[in-house]
């Protein structure tokens, strides 16, 4: 993000350097002046990857979504907007299950995002204190994040099993209800899926928060102390504003990760009961990769993307609302570039 800015700055400096040179080269051109394609060269390695793996597939996906597309069949008839229209036609085969899955994604996101924003912050605040064994605990909280979704899913699928799982067994030992069907009934399945996801990814957000906390200058806290601020006031007026730039990133990132939830429900509940915990990505994968209805699946993806874009815009708008601090605002803009 910052490279083009610097290039721009040296361009404006160049003319002032030119009069010194008496050599016969073109006036106004410094020998060290960057060529116009320099920024593009710097961008090239990533741009190439970005083009091949993001731009081309998304444009191609749009093309696929306009067809009845099965890549194993020679005949891929063009159907125009029919795949999209079908999603909004309650009588079609795919619309019911698609909107159920969108609802499932919505429920999951609604409950997991607030928890994944607040709990890691609390953990980060704790880990920012100095106490014996701090590094150990930092590692412990981050540890689940290094596990793959398959490991986490299988592990919890057996732990949460309502008839043979350890979770219900221990609940029973403590005299709590021990017959909750964690993986086959709602809302218990949602509690389980959100709980597992929080346990699994909490460490990631906590580490980002922790890094941001360590960036807040100590002098601010000292100044606040001198002004007689108590702990809550310091948190409210020093810590939170200091975290503002990172909050946008964490929020968007968590939102998108939650909206893309797939592995947990695929492995732990297999969408049970019925199709209720089948998320949008799950449904898209089933439609496109198992049923080979790639046109429909691509259309579903674009509808999901559309919703995610709206939500992202809303989040940016929320975090940009207060404009009295231009510094925070600028950092937020910089973050927007980093989210990809």
């Amino acid at each position: 993000m910052s490279t083009p800015t610097r290039v721009g700055a040296s361009v404006t400096e160049a003319p002032t350097a030119a009069p010194d040179g008496s050599a016969p080269r073109r006036a106004g051109v410094s020998p060290t002046r960057p060529k116009p394609f320099t920024p593009w060269l710097f961008l090239l390695p990533y741009l190439a990857l970005f083009t091949v793996f993001v731009i081309v597939p998304s444009v191609f996906g749009l093309w696929i979504s306009l067809h009845e597309w099965d890549y194993t069949l020679p005949n891929k008839p063009f159907v125009g907007g029919e795949n999209y229209a079908e999603l909004f036609d309650p009588n079609s085969v795919n619309s019911g299950s698609f909107w159920t899955s969108m609802r499932a994604t919505g429920i999951f996101t609604l409950f997991s995002v607030p928890l994944l924003l607040v709990l890691p912050l609390l953990v980060a605040l704790l880990m920012n204190k100095s106490f014996p064994g701090r590094n150990f605990f930092r590692a412990v909280y981050f540890a689940p994040y290094v596990l793959g979704v398959a490991v986490v899913g299988l592990l919890w699928r057996y732990l949460l099993d309502n008839n043979i799982g350890l979770v219900n067994y221990y609940l029973g030992l403590f005299g709590l209800p021990d017959d909750t069907a964690w993986t086959t009934s709602v809302p218990a399945a949602w509690v389980a899926l959100v709980g597992v996801t929080v346990w699994w990814t909490l460490g990631f957000n906590a580490v980002i928060y922790l890094a941001a906390l360590q960036d807040i200058p100590g002098e601010l806290y000292e100044a606040a102390s001198v002004d007689g601020a108590n702990a809550w006031q310091k948190f409210r007026n020093v810590t939170l504003p200091g975290l503002r730039p990172i909050l946008t990133f964490v929020t968007i990132n968590t939102l998108i990760a939650s909206a893309n939830m797939f592995g947990q429900s695929y492995i732990i509940t297999q969408g049970a009961p019925g199709r209720e915990t089948r998320t949008a990505i799950y449904q898209i994968a089933e439609t496109g990769l198992r049923n080979f209805q790639m046109g429909d699946a691509a259309a579903m993806s674009y509808v999901l993307t559309f919703f995610l874009m709206i939500i992202s815009v809303v989040v940016f708008w929320l975090f940009r609302e207060k404009k009295e601090k231009p510094v925070a605002d600028e950092s937020a803009t910089a973050q927007s570039g980093g989210i990809r």
């Binding site: 099993d161 008839n163 069907a181 993986t183 297999q270």
Partner: peptide, 18 residues
């Protein structure tokens, strides 16, 4: 049968003699 038998639970229960 108990209610809400989840994935593979019936098989594991059989293996365990439950």
């Amino acid at each position: 049968s108990p209610s809400d038998v989840a994935i593979d639970a019936q098989y594991i229960a059989f293996k365990n003699g439950e």
